[in-house]
Nucleic acid binder design. Structure first.
Ligand code: SF4
Ligand code: SF4
Lengths: 159, 159
DNA sequence: TTATTATGGACATAACGGATCTATAATTAA
DNA sequence: TTAATTATAGATCCGTTATGTCCATAATAA
């Protein structure tokens, strides 16, 4: 029940891209250097992010990556779903057990309607997941950028 | 990023114990039968639950398991923490990277106080986790039992 | 065209989850 | 006290996933 390191890297990479918004195309070399992760591995992650339309990539001289949409439209949820996948956090595997029948028979008896409601345990777990997703959807890369800029009282562009 | 099957089994087992509240001591054999999981494996899980004070176990003839506290004092969070462990969902591993320094320097500059606030990314992820925990803490085994009994219009004790 | 950069696939390895088996300890019924 | 019963703990196995590297290829801009 932990987020993978890849998710960690992806988040950091995207925040980095967010910071270097003006200068487009951050190469994998610079990214890798900034994050302290090998180029090989980070490439894989960036590739995934590209396939899902989070970043745009351009090969060739002075190529690299840039955010494919404004930072305020890239939520934590988006990123996590790309890396961790979109399966549900709770997948019950007892669906053929005696107990499953007991816990679901009640609702079948109650409402014969096609409105499948799922069992009680599932309902609680799915509820939890929805809460998590909702929160993650409400925080974007821009959130980080804003907070970061707010904290830094002396202007950010030293150069 | 999925809950393990063990968690699944633990939840089901405890709901089962909750149902058989009056008749104490449900043996591993009955439990295993009801859930459709091997005795060997389920034993391990029950053992863990006992070590953490969720259930009580008594060996010997007619022995078995029973809830160690009232069902309304056993939250989903309790159970999940026993099985999945208590580590945080997001453990950053870039703590020595350039970027880490950049993202944390601002706050160090701002408030020199010992009030360590953690970085922005961490803050969002931890926030998400707290939301999840809060929700899971608010739902107990009794929640399931109540709902189950409510749905079953014809009385539960057929025997 | 050429240097540069991303991409994808093939591997390698380690860690973890899921699961089984067995020997041992504890308890109760007889 | 004895014997049957039941939980406990450790060893071990296997398959999958996570993490990570390497290399050949494709795409692009200068
Ligand atoms: S969680 Fe609910 S639906 Fe899933 S196996 Fe258990 S009782 Fe059935
Ligand atoms: S998440 Fe924050 S604290 Fe952790 S490594 Fe990244 S910047 Fe540092």
């Amino acid at each position: 029940m932990q987020f993978s390191k890849s998710t960690d890297y992806a988040l950091h990479a995207l925040v980095h891209l967010g910071h270097s918004e003006r200068r487009h195309n951050v190469g994998i070399k610079q990214l890798s250097g900034a994050l302290g992760v090998s180029e090989s591995y980070l490439s894989k992650i960036m590739s995934k992010l590209r396939q899902d339309g989070i970043v745009r990539a351009v090969p060739g001289v002075n190529g690299g990556y840039e955010l494919a949409r404004p930072a305020e439209q890239i939520s934590f949820l988006d990123i996590i779903e790309v890396i961790e996948g979109r399966q549900r956090m709770f997948e019950c595997s007892n669906s053929s057990s005696q107990q499953h029948l007991l816990l679901t028979e009640a609702e079948i008896a109650e409402q014969e309607s096609p409105k499948r409601e799922g069992c009680l345990i599932e309902k609680v777990m799915d509820g939890a997941e929805q809460h998590l997703r909702q929160y993650l959807k409400g925080h974007t890369i821009q959130t980080i950028l804003d907070e970061s800029r707010k904290r830094c009282t002396h202007d950010t562009n030293k150069k």
